[in-house]
Amino acid sequence: MTKPIEVKQDAPIVINRTATKSYALQESAIVKWSLITISLLFLALFLILPLITIFVTALEKGWDTYVASITHPDALAAIKLTLTVVLIVVPLNTIFGVAAAWVITKFNFKGKNLLITLIDLPFAVSPVIAGLIFILLFGAQGLFGDWLFANDIKIVFALPGILLATIFVTFPFVARELIPLMQMQGVTEEEASISLGASGFKTFWLVTLPNIKWGLLYGIILCNARTIGEFGAVSVVSGHIRGLTNTMPLHIEILYNEYQFTAAFAVASLMSILAIITIIIKNIIEWKAKEV
């Protein structure tokens, strides 16, 4: 046996494009800087200024008003409801996403493309329609309306309706993040694990999950952001009962329409902070995933 060869054959080669660019592939400095300026101006107008508006308006009347706005009982109730929705919807969608990605990427079966289309469907459906369909099912005049009324079960204009509508809008996120990733990874590592005597559950836990963890987390983060912020679908099914069925975005709407701008933007600023945190976590995940 000879000495192990020390060449890292598949070591990733990182090339900094801009650093290695030959002269012929550079635009002139004028073109470059005008493109950068256009981009930054565009982003300023559409992203940065709106973000600043939120915080400036929220704090316009001072810190005390701000704190009062976000500690108002209705605001707290909205925050609590939103958290409840997140705690139920996100885990459900995560399990669904993993199961759907598993069946789609590890097996071949008839109707697979149909299944993928069904998973993509919510992206083509307006959130308002997402709310409408649950009214048609469970509303007073809906398909199950009489039965639900007779049994005194409330779905629409109550928490279950909000959950259903939110799930409809947010369930694709985890699955869509995982499917391409697991497709790329194939089944050989799972096969190797099983050929070495591991059970199906151990294979998933020890081999599949560590391989997909960043993608999974990424999907969860996106799903979470949309769950917190979903407005149209929830607006239809919630019934806007203050302190009871108002999620944070709905609470913002009510405050805004009542010209309580400072209060509206105060709650909005909380959600913006959550959004910024989401983006930061997302970037950390991307950075981690690249490392692996």
Binding site: T188, E189, E191, A192, S193, L206, V207, P210, N211, V292
Partner: peptide
């Protein structure tokens, strides 16, 4: 292609 567990 070896199918080594890349995270181990």
């Amino acid at each position: 292609h070896y199918a080594l567990f890349r995270h181990m």
